[in-house]
Design a protein around this nucleic acid. Structure first.
Lengths: 197, 197
DNA sequence: GAGAAATTAGCACGATCGGTCGTTTGTGGC
DNA sequence: GCCACAAACGACCGATCGTGCTAATTTCTC
């Protein structure tokens, strides 16, 4: 059984994750976080010895959710193209995230931290590299299954895969383009088409 | 001739643009901006009646630079594929911006403002829609020139064009992938290839 | 060069930031 | 039920934020 402290700590991180999705990790303040829960600022702060520690835990939690919601379900799909398609699908869902989690967070952090060194950036970089790698591995599996061309550059595929997700996010959320998803899917189909044997 | 006030005002906006490229528009503070120039915070503030007014001017200046550095030179290129290629090239340069201007600013703002309504967001949205439109128009011209397929969906092309720029930015700047540019160019060539007659 | 107008400085305000402190309240093991 | 300890509190720190206000200074006009 988890102690009282660990329990509220988890609640804080979860709530912080939601808030950070709206305002970013840097603009997330201990004061507003504490106000949103029934906790004093200092009581909250005591759980983490610094704001950075909190930020790291929040980012790690986001990574965990991403793996749980996107990567893991895709890996349960049949190897090859089906798995790759499912990964793309879940990726889109994650980004547009109608649900509470979502609002792709990682992309926001990319610009918050692309020239702010430190442990948060390091963790972010690691997680993004892992993401590219994951896509790449799924692509390579599709090659092995014979669904995609044998001489396909899997890393190039992953690169473009990620790019489609990024425009999708801007197009759907900032520009409110109603055809954003349709266009993302069309782009993915084209990418698939030219990658087939 | 421009008055003393207008002159320093321009200097402020220019300096603010540089700073905002590093820390974002929201984290740009009047204090640090004034400290960087030889001006008091209040003396600086007097030029703009609010921080938001300053932010709007900074964003407008960034738009002006983007048009000057990317759009305008491309439009001087021969209509059709050459112009489209040049546009892509300049776009990449703008994003990676070794020079002081650069660090694509607009993408950072996308995530800073994608759920923060207000005049700054409005201006940003307008400018980004213009950008997609600009690419689209250049693509349509290439269709008319017979360089690209007659039934090509120019907006789809523009969508993917923008997406490539976005991965490029993350890959090059955050992930420090040395092959980022090479991959961006490969993606663009593939996009071009499947758009030809 | 005097006077009007524009520009800048100085100072202060209320708010909020991350963080520290000593103290109080609650929990859990015995 | 006791007692040690974990957890939460409230007051407070120095810093910084955007933004007023007034006074001094500079620039521009005639």
């Amino acid at each position: 059984m988890l102690s009282k402290g660990e329990q509220t700590r988890q609640e804080i991180v979860e709530r912080a994750l939601a808030l950070a999705g709206e305002v970013g990790l840097e603009r997330l303040s201990l004061g507003m976080l504490a106000a949103g829960m029934s906790l004093s600022k200092s009581g909250l702060f005591a759980h983490f010895r610094s704001k950075e520690a909190l930020q790291l835990e929040v980012l790690q939690k986001a990574i965990d959710h991403f793996i749980e919601d996107v990567v893991a379900p895709a890996l349960r799909e049949a190897r090859g193209e089906p798995r790759l398609r499912r990964l793309f699908d879940l990726h889109l869902q994650w980004i547009h995230g109608n649900g509470r989690r979502g609002s792709c967070f990682f992309m926001a952090l990319t610009h918050e931290y692309d020239d702010r060194p430190g442990p948060v950036r390091d963790l972010l970089v690691r997680s993004q590299r892992d993401w590219y790698d994951t896509v790449s591995r799924v692509v390579r599996a599709a090659v092995e299954e014979g669904h995609l061309r044998a001489d396909l550059d899997a890393d190039q595929f992953a690169y473009e895969f990620v790019g489609i997700g990024m425009v999708f996010q801007q197009s759907a959320k900032l520009l409110e383009n109603p055809r954003a998803e349709e266009r993302a899917r069309a782009a993915f189909e084209a990418l698939l088409a030219r990658s087939r044997p």
